[in-house]
Structures are given as C-alpha cells and as structure tokens.
C-alpha cells in the first residue's frame, strides 16, 4: 500500500462523494465508527480506514475490500459519528462503483442455499438483492 499524489488526486473520491452525498474529507479519524461496529471483526478494512483510504485515494485497496460486502448498513456508526459522516452511504457508494465497473453481481439466486430460500423472510431476500446485485 502506497500513497501517491496521483492517487490522492484521483477521481474516486469525487465519485464516492457524489454518489454518497457525503463529505469524506470531514472525517478526523476518531474511529468511533469502528469501535462500535457489530460486524467489524469480519472486516479486512475497518470503517474508519475506509474513510482514510478514500481520503488518500487508495482505490484498489478499497474496491478489493471484503468490508464492502460485510457492512450490514445498521447505521450504528453514523448515529455516533461526531463529524456527521454517514459511513454506510460511503460504503454503499463504493459498492455501487464496484458493481458498475465490474458488471457482475455479488449474490445470485442460484447460490443461495435451499434452506435460506425456503425459510428466509421476503424482507431479507429483497434487502440482500438490493444490496448485492445490480
């Protein structure tokens, strides 16, 4: 991982800020988001690092991060953020950028276990496909 002027000046931050409507530069890295995230242990890049990587234009590290698919948009982090950054929206923007660039979907109905298809509530299925597919 290396920070360069080219990366910092890349378009990714602008695109993420536009799609999310959030100001990535507002974050001062207190990391309160990460401290309270209920699924942080499953993430490779922590929520405060997502914002830091975005500030530094570390596009590859962001777009390859498992975190984009782990965040459950529970909004615990943004409800405590002292800088009023809606982090799930930033993560959502990255997910959208990625799904658009790669075209593929993260989740396909064929990959769901029969047990899940059988028992899961409609609410869960609709949510998952809204999040994970385009």
């Amino acid at each position: 991982m290396k920070v360069t002027t080219d990366k910092i000046n890349s378009n990714l931050i602008k695109e993420v800020e536009e799609v999310s409507g959030q100001k990535v530069s507002a974050c001062f890295q207190c990391a309160k988001c990460t401290g309270g995230c209920p699924v942080v242990w499953a993430m490779d890049v922590y929520p405060h690092q997502i914002l830091r990587y975005a500030q530094l234009g570390l596009a590859d590290e962001l777009l390859n991060s498992k975190t984009l698919w782990i965040c459950a948009s529970c909004q615990t982090c943004d409800s405590r953020c002292p800088r009023e950054v809606d982090i799930p929206k930033v993560i959502e923007a990255l997910r959208l950028v990625l799904l658009r660039a790669r075209g593929g979907n993260y989740l396909h109905p064929n990959n769901l276990p029969a047990r899940v298809l059988e028992n899961a509530p409609q609410q869960g299925l609709v949510s998952a496909f809204r999040k994970y597919a385009r």
């Binding site: 890295q29 207190c30 990391a31 309160k32 990460t34 401290g35 309270g36 942080v40 242990w41 922590y46 405060h48 690092q49």
Partner: peptide, 12 residues
Amino acid sequence: VRSVDALSGALV
C-alpha cells in the same frame, strides 16, 4: 469498553 486503536488497527 469498546474501541479501536487506530494506530495499530487493533480492535480494543
């Protein structure tokens, strides 16, 4: 007390 050490990246 739940937090993270942002310097090391370790969950606390």
